[in-house]
Design a protein around this nucleic acid. Structure first.
Length: 217
DNA sequence: GACCAGGCACATC
DNA sequence: GATGTGCATGGT
């Protein structure tokens, strides 16, 4: 590996400072955001969450009980609103069955157990599951997203075609398994991806620029 | 109007 | 196992 992960982390932290993630006040709000932001701009998700709050629906029991049409209209700004209504209800039912007082029932430290449990929910894939485990429950799992994959391959750290779990394993095996570190690292990747290492190329301000193979001005 | 945004399940080869 | 496709809104 050309550049050590700890080096990348320190460069990003130095450039951007702590990101204080996830943007959300409660574990359920964080989980809802993780689901609604699938392949969607965060600004649109904020609109959907504001609607949920305004209507008093930011509650898994309300989601599980509400008619599809109500939820669809509420989360419409987040896109894929029919699909996400189905997924949101599935997640709400899982939450009601497995979470009490914002804590996982039993064995809350058993990361693999809870990851498999979340992955059994239709509509919850690996990134969404890891986001919920890390940001709602503070379990030490690394969240891989399109930013992570793009930044790592563009800076010659890993191959572009790498599988989600392979990339996740690299972070989890090379770094201390600390949820605070994983939280900050992922948030910094998103910041970098949005700001200076976009889909079309890095800007000259990319903090990892010296190792980048697609610089534009 | 094209392109992009914290994915995922399912079909098909 | 890899690869393709549908799902939808809103900002640039």
């Amino acid at each position: 590996m050309q550049m050590q992960l700890s080096k990348i982390f320190s460069l990003l932290l130095e450039e951007y400072g702590p990101q204080h993630w996830w943007p959300g006040d409660t574990p359920w709000e964080i989980a809802a955001g993780a689901l609604l932001t699938q392949n969607t701009n965060w600004g649109n998700v904020e609109k959907a969450i504001a609607n949920l709050k305004r209507l008093g629906l930011l509650d898994p029991a309300k989601i599980a009980d509400s008619r599809d049409e109500i939820i669809q209209n509420t989360i419409r700004p987040a896109g894929y609103f029919r699909l996400k209504t189905y997924r949101f209800k599935n997640l709400a039912r899982w939450w009601l069955a497995n979470v009490r007082n914002d804590h996982l029932k039993r064995k809350s430290s058993d990361l693999d157990f809870w990851r498999d449990s979340l992955l059994s929910v239709s509509g919850v894939g690996r990134e969404t599951a890891d986001s919920i485990l890390l940001y709602s429950f503070h379990l030490p799992t690394f969240v891989v997203d399109t930013y992570t994959k793009r930044i790592m391959s563009r800076h010659y750290v890993t191959a572009e075609s790498i599988d989600y779990d392979e990339l996740r394993d690299i972070f989890m095996n090379e770094l201390p398994r600390d949820p605070v570190l994983f939280n900050e690292f992922h948030a910094l990747f998103v910041r970098l991806g949005k700001e200076a290492c976009g889909k079309r190329g890095c800007t000259a301000q990319c903090p990892l620029g010296a190792e980048c193979h697609r610089v534009r001005m």
